Simulated scan of single mutants.
Amino acid sequence: MYTTILTSLENNILTITINRPDKLNALNKAVFTELNAVLDDVYFNSAIKSVIITGSGSKAFVAGADIAEFVGLSVEQGVALAQAGQDTFFRIENCPKPIVACVNGFALGGGCELAMSCHFRIASDTAKFGQPEVNLGLLPGYGGTQRLTHLIGKGRAIELLISGALIDANTALSYGLVNYVVPQEELLAKATNILQVINTKAPIAVAACITAANAALDEQRDGFALEIEAFGSCFATDDMKEGTSAFLEKRKAVFSGK
């Protein structure tokens, strides 16, 4: 079905693998087109409860954008390219279902931006992160300047952005860029174990948590007000009734997503 990505659905967890190993899984127009197509499925397929995004092979998660597609672009075309990339990554960030990046190698440029758009990140001990766009006379265009600053703080973010330096997985962990560092062979299992737990929770409440947390970093939204509204809305759900009943009856809740 796809030519640049692989998909696999198991136990309600969809694994999306960027599959251009000869190009270190670099992002090109085809990858973005297919990623948007699979995101449509993620949003609307009830069989999918959560998602893992990773890269094929052991060298790279995504080593960046496909720079060959940048050559000869006009200002207007550059703006359109950045807008399209940001639109895709906003879809990931705002997805009501958890999306976890399993960073299995180089996450550079657009690859680091892709990882940062996910709800959280798990890295192999071989992973490396960076925004080296300044080496090309550019800056990150797919949201990297904003998300990196939010995740690791302004001082560290600016240093990485203007030096183009790379950091290893353990440094990324100490900066708060990733949640866990595990051996390469344990990467997908770690993510799967976490998502299996999340998949037992109330889907409407999970989605509301994601929306409210995203609002904390959006100056155009009142996160506190959004939280109040979402909290109140949950009282109309079957899941809230089931969750509170199960708690009082000392049994495990079985949520329907309604």
Results as ranks from 00 to 15, higher is better:
residue 66 D to E: 14
residue 124 S to Y: 05
residue 225 A to R: 07
residue 64 G to E: 02
residue 153 G to R: 02
residue 44 F to V: 01
residue 48 I to C: 00
residue 167 I to N: 02
residue 137 G to P: 15
residue 163 S to I: 11
residue 42 V to Y: 01
residue 4 T to V: 09
residue 58 S to G: 13
residue 14 L to R: 01
residue 57 G to F: 12
residue 200 T to R: 06
residue 50 S to L: 13
residue 92 I to R: 01
residue 168 D to N: 14
residue 24 L to K: 03
residue 81 L to G: 03
residue 216 A to P: 00
residue 211 T to K: 13
residue 59 K to Q: 14
residue 95 C to T: 01
residue 206 V to I: 15
residue 2 Y to L: 05
residue 245 S to M: 06
residue 62 V to K: 00
residue 232 G to P: 02
residue 187 L to E: 01
residue 10 E to F: 14
residue 235 F to A: 11
residue 84 A to P: 15
residue 169 A to H: 09
residue 15 T to E: 10
residue 68 A to N: 14
residue 7 T to H: 01
residue 122 I to Q: 00
residue 123 A to H: 04
residue 203 P to M: 03
residue 5 I to W: 01
residue 250 K to D: 08
residue 65 A to S: 11
residue 70 F to E: 12
residue 94 N to T: 13
residue 34 E to S: 10
residue 18 I to M: 07
residue 20 R to M: 05
residue 255 F to Q: 00
residue 229 E to D: 13
residue 73 L to R: 11
residue 248 L to V: 07
residue 16 I to T: 02
residue 239 D to F: 06
residue 111 G to E: 02
residue 123 A to M: 13
residue 153 G to F: 13
residue 3 T to M: 09
residue 118 C to D: 00
residue 54 T to H: 03
residue 205 A to L: 12
residue 26 A to R: 01
residue 190 K to A: 02
residue 136 L to Y: 15
residue 143 G to W: 06
residue 164 G to M: 05
residue 75 V to A: 11
residue 150 H to T: 13
residue 147 R to H: 08
residue 189 A to E: 13
residue 159 E to D: 11
residue 204 I to H: 01
residue 230 A to Y: 04
residue 101 A to H: 07
residue 139 L to W: 11
residue 117 S to I: 05
residue 246 A to W: 05
residue 154 K to A: 13
residue 40 D to R: 06
residue 201 K to C: 10
residue 224 F to Q: 07
residue 190 K to R: 04
residue 41 D to M: 04
residue 42 V to P: 00
residue 82 A to V: 08
residue 127 A to V: 12
residue 91 R to L: 11
residue 212 A to L: 12
residue 165 A to P: 14
residue 118 C to T: 08
residue 91 R to C: 09
residue 216 A to Q: 13
residue 95 C to S: 01
residue 253 A to M: 03
residue 18 I to C: 03
residue 103 V to C: 10
residue 237 T to L: 14
residue 10 E to H: 12
residue 257 G to N: 07
residue 20 R to L: 15
residue 119 H to E: 01
residue 111 G to M: 01
